[in-house]
Design a protein around this nucleic acid. Structure first.
Length: 924
RNA sequence: CCGGGCGUGGCGAAAUGGCAGACGCAUCGGACUUAAAAUCCGAAGGUGUAACAACCGUGUGGGUUCGAGUCCCGCCGCCCGGACCA
């Protein structure tokens, strides 16, 4: 019988499932086995099913996991479904099916496709974010956030009850703006924020005021703020979900509008999210993306008084270059700045009003498009530069953003590109205050660091020192403060959609949010037939009056119950909620009492290897780290970071496409073209140039390859090998169905070499392995193991192909060689490996058979081949005993046939011998 | 514009500063076949030669080194990310 994948692939997949071959061993039974948590990014089960690009990362972790099991490691390798989300809902609306139904079908299809590839998941741990037994705990974690605040001294989350205690004990007081600060009457306390002298003690507040104060501290809170409203999707979106002013899903325009929304206080964690990146084994580029997204910048806030006795407000600006303060020749407020109204003079009122209206009408996208052309208007007001009491004009312009810093800047046109453009256009003075340290002249705008000039108190100081001195000088007068600003905004956490987790929150008549009791979880998403968006910011769930209105049970301090009429929160959570913690649920997926058992969590966490796409760099990966840190602070998990090592798999592109280079390019087949010089041309018409390109796989382009077909034609093992053989896991590479045949041939040849024909089976005997093959075998064992550990699957496969050739040359195959070969092949082509293994007489799966051992003594060769160079150019090679000493090697090298002519009449100035590597004669 | 990464045969790619192109596809030649497919064996970077030799070759120009695909600097091109963030 020749190699025929259909004869046994299904059989082994069934065997693995039935025998739970890949079940992780529970910590209590694992003894002293090392553990490895190998995690994949779980998919959103879309209606379209998988394309061949999806499983490439999953295959990598699968091979890695299979290898580790053979190395005696207790491996946790699970899979699940991130099944809440917009596409399911949109599909449901369009086709009038309930999203629960399509989700179920899609999951079944995804599971079938994944199992068809022979993945070694522990299927008993499968999670589904839309399952109430799962999202019960998503809601529970939300309540942890709701019931916590960020302690700015300890820099960590703590239960809100701790804050209440501190307030009741009088350690903290409440400022006039509702802020919390240390009680200045207490010994050794320093104020956190807010104006001193207007504080009130906790006991002085009404119940409503107390609720307000606490609401302002919670990690999950509601806020009326300008948000990204997407009319096309009928929901608001987080900053991370908006790309270039359009929704990431669907590409609909997004507008800013103020709405009351749930926010998560991720900004409190900005510093820790940056600092903890350092210790992680993540791609440097990805860490950099997170750092940029968080956008930490250190600078100073400086107050400018307004030159008008009737106005006592000050304009506070944020700058990273306080050293350029002497060069501030004007100021700019964002058009939306709160003081614009107040400071604008009567003469300028009309023009400023018009400019503000125009700016308000511009989308973020327009603003970006116009970035180069600076616009703005003069308010008529002047401010006083606190360092030299100069009077400078105050402008408004939309190049200053409301959302960043203080929404106001001091403009230093000599040392900032944008200020320079604006000053040039509006004819404002430009004053150089930083010089090149070398003394060479500079022209405005000069952006870099240097030494201060024309700046009396800091002249001659380098930028860093100048900054500190300026801040110190102004801080004495209370008009400057060293501060840190972030680009990161709090996470907008509510969506006006149906298909998501309901918030475990009820709202009283005053609009105050209250948690429902833990015993009421899960709060199940109610059934409804009309879940279309309402077209207004009112969420679909608001249509179910019965569900929305609730007599909520509460318990008072004495433990007596009472009920109050409340309305349920009708927003739902965003898709990211479920994926923020799924890796924790895998550890203990059926626990009805806790989201994860603490002992099990301690054993398995952190994740040892996480492979997934780079598209989650600032979404899932930032959100999950944030939630994890909150859970860590509250003592629910044992590690400060969830994912220790992370690898981004590269995209699989569609097949290479060829287009003629002309006004209307025609698609041509590879058979129609030929190479001419360094470009392609048409065979039929060599003057017609042809361009080769690759594209992302997409339905619209029609270049999607379906794994069902590939597996059907070539088998799962060939598919697995091909994907891994494409190239390094991290790099982007094009698919080419034609190339799969190579892997198919390899598998077929393996079959022929170890099984053979029905009537002419291969002879396998317990004989010694011939020396040369033995050496090759040990080399392969070493190389394949190293390659798998470093995720270099392509070179590991190349090594197996080489060894297979040697096996094929033998009359009788030694049993040890056959078995070792099969074991090494197993992580890559597990079906074929299991099949041969069983034909070799084994009755149990090889999944936990030990990986073959390398005998270092067997790696040593009797002789070695050494290249001989003359002046760095290779002239000959010599073969010599492996233990030959330097003199022997050099002597042999010198007398090598093709070397001699190059040494004639020359003096050898230098002889280099790199042991076992090469000889080089430098002659002159 | 800023940040990061990458440029090696016809294609996917290998190569701790030490034999460039392992391994696979495609190609060409041979075997088997009436023939084709499949399969097996072999060849192959370019120029050059009867064959050797020799010369040239890792985007491009420099540099470091006995020796550079690999390290350093400039340029060109491609990819990814960010982008009026003060």
């Amino acid at each position: 019988m020749p190699y025929n994948h259909t004869a046994f692939e299904k059989k082994w997949q069934q065997y693995w499932l039935t025998n739970k071959t890949f079940a992780a061993i529970e910590p209590a039974e694992a003894g002293d086995m090392p553990k490895a948590y190998v995690l994949d990014m779980f998919p959103y089960p879309s209606g379209a099913g998988l394309h061949v690009g999806h499983p490439i990362g999953w295959l990598a972790t699968d091979i890695f996991s299979r290898y580790l099991r053979m190395k005696g490691t207790n491996v946790l390798h699970p899979m699940g479904w991130d099944a809440f989300g917009l596409p399911a809902e949109q599909y449901a609306i369009k086709n009038n099916v309930h999203p629960a139904v399509t989700t179920k079908t899609n999951i079944a299809n995804f599971r079938r496709q994944i199992q068809m590839l022979g993945m070694s998941y522990d299927w008993d741990r499968e999670v589904d974010t839309t399952d109430p037994t799962y999202y019960k705990w998503t809601q529970w974690i939300f309540l942890q956030l709701f019931n916590s605040y960020f302690d700015p001294i300890e820099k960590k989350a703590r239960p809100i009850s701790h804050l209440v205690n501190e307030l009741e004990n009088g350690n903290f007081v409440v400022g006039p703006d509702g802020s919390i600060k240390n009680n200045p009457t207490q010994e050794g306390m320093e104020a956190i924020s807010g104006q001193v002298g207007l504080e009130r003690g906790w006991a002085e507040l009404t119940v409503e005021e107390k609720n307000e104060v606490l609401a302002g501290q919670r990690l999950a809170f509601t806020d009326e703020a300008p948000v990204n409203w997407c009319p096309g999707l009928g929901t608001v979106l987080s900053n991370e979900e908006v790309i270039d002013g359009k929704s990431e899903v669907g590409g609909f325009p997004v507008e800013r509008r103020p709405m009351r929304q749930w926010m998560l206080r991720i900004t409190a964690y900005a510093d820790r999210l940056i600092a903890d990146l350092d210790a992680l084994q993540w791609p440097e580029s990805l860490k950099e993306m997170q750092r940029n997204w968080i956008g930490r910048s250190v600078g100073a806030e400086i107050d400018f008084e307004i030159d008008n006795a009737a106005i006592d407000d000050v304009i506070t600006v944020f700058t990273t270059r306080p050293d350029t303060l002497y060069g501030a020749t004007y100021m700019v407020l964002s058009p939306e700045h709160a003081l614009v109204e107040k400071i604008t003079t009567a003469e300028q009122r009309e023009a400023i009003g018009a400019y503000r209206a125009q700016a308000a009408g511009k989308s973020d996208r327009d603003r970006m498009a116009d970035a180069k052309d600076k616009t703005g208007g003069f308010t008529g007001a002047y401010a006083i530069n606190p360092i030299n009491d100069e009077k400078i004009p105050v402008y408004i312009a939309d190049y200053v953003l409301t959302g960043y810093g203080t929404g106001a800047i001091m403009a230093v046109p000599a040392h900032d590109d944008r200020d320079f453009e604006f000053a040039t256009k509006f004819g404002l003075p430009i004053k150089l205050v930083v010089a090149d340290p070398s003394g060479s002249p500079v022209a405005a705008p000069f952006i870099g660091e240097g030494v201060a000039v024309n700046s009396p108190i800091i002249d001659g100081l380098p930028t860093e020192q100048a900054k500190d001195k300026i801040i110190a000088a102004l801080a004495d007068e209370g008009v400057a403060l060293k501060t840190v600003k972030y680009k990161l905004r709090d996470w907008l956490f509510s969506r006006q959609r149906y298909w998501g987790e309901p918030f475990p929150i009820v709202i009283d008549a005053d609009g105050m949010a209250h948690a429902i009791r833990e015993a009421e979880l899960p709060l199940v998403l109610p059934e409804m037939t009309d879940f279309k968006p309402t077209g207004t910011p009112e969420p679909p769930l608001s249509k179910i009056e019965d569900w929305v209105n609730v007599e909520q049970l509460f318990f008072d301090d004495k433990g007596d119950s009472f009920t109050r009429h409340m309305r349920r929160e009708t927003n739902t959570m965003p898709q990211w909620a479920g994926s923020c913690w799924y890796y924790l649920r895998y550890i203990d997926p059926h626990n009805p009492n806790r989201f994860v058992d603490p002992e099990k969590e301690k054993y398995w966490m952190p994740v040892d290897l996480y492979i997934g796409g780079v598209e989650h760099a600032v979404l899932h990966l930032l959100y999950a780290r944030f939630w994890h840190k909150v859970l860590f602070d509250l003592g629910h998990v044992s590690t400060p970071e969830p994912f220790n090592k992370l690898v981004n798999q590269g995209l699989v592109l569609g097949e290479m496409e060829y287009h003629t280079v002309e006004e209307t390019p025609r698609k041509v087949s590879e058979d129609d073209i030929t190479r001419h010089g360094d470009s392609y041309v048409l065979k039929a018409n060599p003057s017609q140039k042809v361009k080769a390109e690759t594209f992302k796989m997409s339905k619209s382009r029609g270049n999607v390859v379906n794994p069902d077909e590939i597996v059907n034609d070539y088998g799962a093992d060939a598919f697995r090998l091909y994907e891994m053989y494409l190239g390094p896991i991290e790099s982007q590479k094009p698919w080419n169905t034609r190339d799969i045949i190579g892997m198919s041939r390899f598998l077929s040849s393996t079959w022929n070499n170890l099984v053979g024909e029905e009537d002419k089976p291969v002879k396998i005997d317990a004989i010694a392995i011939p020396e040369a093959v033995d050496r090759q075998m040990h080399r392969t064992i070493k190389k394949v193991a190293e390659d798998i550990e470093c995720l270099r699957f392509n070179t590991a496969i190349a090594e197996l192909i080489k060894l297979n050739k040697e096996v094929g040359a033998l009359e009788v195959v030694p049993r040890e060689l056959a078995e070792n070969f099969v074991l090494m092949l197993a992580p890559f082509a597990p079906h074929l490996a299991e099949e041969i293994w069983s034909r070799l007489g084994h009755t149990k799966s090889l999944a936990r058979r030990p990986w073959p051992t390398v005998d270092p003594a067997k790696l040593i060769e009797a002789s070695m081949e050494i290249p001989v160079q003359v002046n760095g150019k290779i002239r000959d090679k010599i073969v010599i005993a492996a233990d030959a000493d330097e003199d022997t090697v050099v002597a042999a090298a010198m007398s090598a046939e093709k070397v001699k002519p190059w040494l004639v009449d020359k003096t050898i100035r230098k002889t280099l011998y790199v042991p076992k590597r090469m000889v080089n004669f430098v002659v002159g």
